[in-house]
Amino acid sequence: MPPEPDAPPPALDDETVAFAGRVFQMARMGHAEELAALFGQGLPANLRNDKGDSLLMLAAYNGQAEATRVILEAGGDPELANDRGQTPLAGAAFKGEIGIARLLLDHGAAVDGSGAGGRTALMVAAMFDRTEMVDLLLARGADPDRRDAGGQSAAEMAQAMGASETPAQLAQAKRP
């Protein structure tokens, strides 16, 4: 008999919870071969933890390029935002992970993609003065004029955070 539509999901046993914890740790630590084997056995590539972080988010945020590639190739969604509205591309931008940002973009991440708050990877990169990341995102078509849900642009966010180089970099990008 199927569960009622509004019924809470069944409780997970301790063994299942422990297994899930190990899988998320594999993504964080970059255990690409182990993840690939689990995907081959049917593990869903878009598995998420209690904070909404997907395996892809954890691998990308922690600079695990090979694990990021394996997850993407297994069907990991590069647009799946976590509970804080952060996409894997924004996570890579925050950490300054250029190679991972390229990998995500090459596998379909929207350059101006965002979670619920409307904050894009360009905004995140600008806020933290990640000039190389800003260059990459602009070269891939990021919109420097886009605004988040609060109405702020990447340059305004960068100025508010005290970024020293990205406000001028973004102003230069807007010139014809």
Rank of each mutant, 00 (worst) to 15 (best):
S54F: 10
L55T: 04
L55A: 06
M57I: 05
M57S: 14
L58V: 01
A59V: 06
A59W: 09
A60H: 03
Y61H: 13
Y61A: 14
Y61R: 03
N62G: 09
N62W: 12
G63C: 08
Q64K: 14
A67D: 00
T68W: 03
V70T: 00
V70S: 00
I71T: 04
I71C: 02
E73V: 05
E73I: 08
A74G: 05
A74P: 06
G75C: 06
G75M: 07
G75L: 06
D77R: 04
D77G: 01
P78N: 12
E79T: 08
L80D: 01
L80C: 00
A81C: 10
A81N: 12
A81Q: 13
D83W: 09
D83Y: 14
R84M: 12
R84C: 11
G85E: 06
T87K: 09
P88W: 08
P88F: 04
A90L: 12
A90H: 08
A90Q: 15
G91F: 09
A92Q: 01
A92C: 08
F94Q: 04
K95E: 13
G96R: 09
E97W: 04
I98E: 06
I98Y: 07
I98M: 01
I98Q: 01
G99S: 11
G99H: 05
G99W: 00
G99N: 14
R102C: 06
L103H: 02
L104A: 02
L104T: 02
L104E: 03
L105M: 13
L105I: 15
D106H: 07
D106I: 06
H107F: 14
G108F: 10
A110H: 14
G113D: 05
S114T: 07
S114Y: 05
S114L: 00
S114M: 00
G115Q: 01
G115I: 05
A116P: 10
G117E: 13
G117Q: 15
G117R: 05
G118F: 08
R119G: 02
A121N: 15
A121W: 14
L122V: 03
M123S: 05
M123I: 11
V124S: 08
M127Q: 09
M127K: 02
F128M: 14
D129L: 04
R130V: 00
R130C: 00
T131V: 13
T131C: 09
E132S: 11
E132N: 07
M133C: 03
V134L: 02
L138A: 05
G141C: 11
A142F: 07
A142K: 06
D143W: 03
P144S: 09
D145F: 12
R146W: 12
R146I: 11
R147I: 15
R147K: 15
R147V: 15
R147W: 09
D148W: 07
G150I: 02
G150P: 01
G151L: 14
S153N: 01
S153P: 11
E156I: 04
M157T: 00
M161G: 04
G162M: 15
G162Q: 06
A163R: 02
S164T: 13
S164A: 14
